[in-house]
């Protein structure tokens, strides 16, 4: 019963009048959170309902019960949050030492950082940790606006090598050395 309520009110449903539609969407972007919660709830419920549970399972509460409760909870919360947002409720964006909320979000930096992180994850096995880590540090610093091409790569290399040595050799936490460590 809660499901259709939310679906009707999400931006993908019946479109509001064309005039000011974009600004309405921007003002109500929090509805996206409701959509995600709704999707997550459906996912959890589907997974729970399609589970084939062994009949011999002990006890009255099987592995399905808690997922069913959590999934239903997600649907209910998605609906309640949608109501709250449509009534004008807004989540407070988090503040902090280095955060300036007066400017719009800088999506380019976030995307760049995500890309750099994924790239490093892919490279860590073929190139080894020292190289992939240095690329991650330099790439992230670059994405965040540092343009010191003389200093940045050097700092990145030192941080990565020292971390590798400390973890791998001193603390006993193995990290892949890669071809570079094979040469050294």
């Amino acid at each position: 019963m809660t499901t259709p309520t939310t679906a009707d009110r999400t931006p993908d449903g019946t479109p509001p009048p064309a005039t000011g539609r974009r600004s309405w969407l921007r003002d109500h972007s929090e509805l996206g959170v409701c959509v995600l919660l709704l999707a997550l709830g459906v996912l959890v419920l589907t997974d729970a309902l399609t589970m084939d549970v062994d009949i011999t399972q002990r006890g009255p509460v099987g592995p399905k019960t808690v997922p069913l409760v959590v999934g239903t909870g997600l649907l209910v919360v998605a609906a309640l949050l949608a109501v709250d947002v449509l009534r004008g409720g807004r989540g407070q964006a988090e503040t902090g030492e280095d955060i300036d909320l007066s400017e719009p979000a800088d999506w380019r930096t976030v995307l760049l950082l995500t890309g750099v992180f994924l790239g490093a994850a892919v490279l860590i096995e073929p190139l080894g940790f020292p190289v992939a880590g240095a690329l991650l540090f330099w790439g992230a610093a670059f994405a965040l606006g540092s343009r010191r091409f003389d200093r940045d790569p050097l700092i990145a290399a030192v941080v990565s090598l020292v971390t590798y040595a400390v973890f791998n050799n001193l603390l006993g936490v193995p990290l892949p050395g890669g071809p570079l460590m094979g040469v050294l």
């Binding site: 992180f117 490093a120 994850a121 992230a140 540092s146 936490v173 990290l175």
Partner: peptide, 19 residues
């Protein structure tokens, strides 16, 4: 410098998760 600080956080987070 803030770029180093947050690059460092991402870097060490990656170390932690990988380890």
């Amino acid at each position: 410098p803030r770029p180093y600080l947050y690059a460092g956080i991402l870097f060490f987070a990656a170390v932690g998760a990988y380890a």
